[in-house]
């Protein structure tokens, strides 16, 4: 079964859809969590601490968080690997372009590959910035995420990188969510409008919700 999946273009696309939806689910939770920044350092830092103690006493300190991290790393790797392999195959299947070219398909559809690469790079930068603090501007303080976030969005490049990535995310989800429904065989003529609407609403809410944080810092509402 696993071999059947990975060896087939249809199966590999299924891996992409499922891993994409796992990441999407996480992002909805992540976005809602981030908005707590508007309730001040106390509440935000407390929330961050809670993330490490979820599931106690059954789970040890940070076990749940690590479980989520492992699932996400597996999802990112599975998603990127299948995206890379399928894209390579697609390009090989259509080596010569038409002389009479015309723009095809929607912007969101055409930018899935480059948008995905932008997201991949962003994920690396984001972790090095706010999880490990390796590339953080100013002194990174473990356990003080509120201050770290404010520091990041007090630099122009922090804002630009983040906002560009979130716009790419919105486009990726706009085509990705609807696509995943088709890949998993749950799309239909009757559901098409509903699926497209949900895709657009999710894309818009996530992009706006994530961008609200740097905007808060830039406008001085969060400081």
């Amino acid at each position: 079964m696993a071999r059947t999946m990975w060896d087939s273009t249809v199966g590999k696309k299924t891996v992409m859809a499922v891993s994409g939806l796992i990441m999407l689910l996480y992002l909805v939770a992540h976005m809602i969590g981030n908005l707590k920044i508007y309730f001040g350092a106390g509440e935000f830092n407390h929330y961050a601490h809670w993330l490490r103690t979820v599931g106690e006493p059954f789970m040890h300190y940070e076990w749940t968080l690590w479980l989520i991290r492992i699932v996400l790393v597996v999802a990112v790797v599975a998603h990127a690997t299948s995206a890379y392999q399928l894209s390579r195959r697609d390009i090989k299947a259509r080596p010569s372009k038409y002389v009479h070219a015309r723009p095809r398909s929607s912007y969101a559809t055409r930018t899935m590959r480059w948008g995905g690469v932008i997201l991949g790079l962003f994920i690396v930068w984001h972790l090095l910035d706010l999880t490990t603090g390796t590339v953080h501007s100013g002194g990174f303080q473990e356990g003080h995420p509120y201050q770290n976030v404010v520091d990041t969005f007090s630099t122009w490049y922090g804002d630009v990188v983040y906002i560009v990535a979130m716009l790419a995310l919105g486009l990726h989800i706009r085509h990705g969510f609807w696509s995943a429904a088709q890949t998993l065989g749950v799309g239909s003529r009757a559901r098409d409008r509903a699926l497209k609407t949900v895709a657009n609403v999710l894309a818009l809410l996530l992009t706006a919700g994530f961008i609200a944080v740097p905007v808060g810092v830039m406008t001085g509402v969060v400081s």
Partner: peptide, 25 residues
């Protein structure tokens, strides 16, 4: 050696017989 589907919908637009994109779904 055919490629995979990225759901651009170009196929269904070109199909002279109107086979719809949801056929792929």
């Amino acid at each position: 050696g055919f490629g995979g589907c990225t759901l651009t919908g170009e196929c269904a637009t070109a199909c002279p017989k109107g086979i719809p994109l949801v056929s792929i779904t």
